[in-house]
Amino acid sequence: MTFSVVARDPATGDLGIAVSSCILAVGRVVPSVRPGVGVVAVQARSRRGLGHTLLGGLAAGADPADLVRKAAHSAEDADRQIAVLDTAGRVAADTGRGSFPVSGHLVGEGTSVQGNMLASPEVLPAMAQALAAARGDLPDRLLAALTAGQDAGGDVRGRQSAALLVVSGAPATDEDDGVRTDLRVDDSGDPVAQLRVLRNLQRAYDERDYETLALFAPDGARDLYAALAASQRGDRDAARAALAGLRARPGWSAWLAAMAGDPRLSAVSRLLG
């Protein structure tokens, strides 16, 4: 009832998973991730706690192939579908004999695509090919694979939700929780497309692309990003107009005063000074 992709970025060591399905909030059900440990996809009629168990095995040093083999021999998991990826890029997957057709998995170098109740046998090869051909960072490559799966038919029942998670290959610390991307679309007529929109918005926040945020950020904050974008361009009049719009909103004047020390806003202040 689901198709997903797991992969490791050999350049950064980051690990990730992207998944889509015709169920509500698939991001709550299929992915299990832990920085410095690994990524697990648990699909079909798998037990809800299986992802936690598999991550525990990885944390204890088990090989993904051994974990998958053990799960494959569990009678209660005959209908499950799983993929397990560790920080070294070792990956293993299995599709239980009771999984809904069309079902299967394709394992590559540090990657695996898997799905069940698919619209056609072309879904998984399309995902694997798109992942191999994609450029950019890991979230974008995972999304390329997910998009290719959807374009090839995806879930035979339709579409409702999708999720994208990427974590560091290094353990979390007090300064860094290890989560690079955590985006979810719980209920949508086109969840993969909506997930791409969220990914582009996250990139704008990460890269301080204020021009984009001035258009697509929540309505109440767009004037702020318009002021920051104008500051980047050196456009005094536009920055002044955007700040005037901000000050006209209830409560924003006090917020601006409290943020006077923020280097982004001080740049705007210097422009207006």
Rank of each mutant, 00 (worst) to 15 (best):
R249G: 15
V156P: 09
A71M: 06
V19W: 11
V19G: 08
A72T: 03
L138G: 04
D206N: 10
A162K: 02
L118T: 01
T12E: 12
V6E: 15
M127V: 11
D151Y: 03
T87G: 09
G56H: 03
L164R: 08
I17H: 09
P191T: 02
D206W: 09
R28E: 11
M117C: 12
R8D: 06
R8G: 01
D223L: 11
C22Q: 07
A75P: 08
A11D: 10
L54E: 05
A92R: 04
G158Q: 14
E207H: 07
R90T: 12
A62E: 00
V29A: 02
G245V: 00
R233C: 11
R141D: 10
G245N: 00
D155N: 02
G261E: 03
P35T: 12
A242V: 04
D182Q: 05
Q43W: 14
V6N: 14
G115N: 15
R249T: 13
V39W: 03
G110C: 01
G178P: 07
Q194A: 08
V268Y: 07
A25H: 06
S21H: 12
R249K: 15
R249C: 14
S21V: 10
L213M: 00
D14M: 09
A126C: 05
D77P: 13
L54T: 00
G57S: 03
R203K: 10
W252V: 01
A170C: 03
S99N: 04
R196H: 13
A93G: 14
V91C: 00
G115C: 14
G96S: 14
P218E: 05
A134R: 07
Q129S: 06
L183W: 02
L55F: 14
A172Q: 11
E76A: 15
P191S: 05
E211A: 11
D86H: 08
Q202M: 10
V91P: 00
A119W: 00
R141L: 08
V197F: 09
N116I: 01
G56S: 01
C22A: 11
G158P: 09
L54G: 06
A41N: 05
A214L: 00
A18W: 05
A83H: 06
G273H: 14
D190K: 08
S74F: 07
L142R: 06
S120M: 02
R8P: 04
M259Q: 12
L256P: 14
K70Y: 08
S99M: 01
R270Q: 14
M259S: 09
L143Y: 04
N116C: 08
R141C: 07
R184H: 09
D77L: 15
L58Q: 05
C22D: 12
W252M: 04
L106M: 04
R34L: 14
R157T: 02
A88Q: 14
F216A: 15
V68H: 12
D174T: 04
R159N: 15
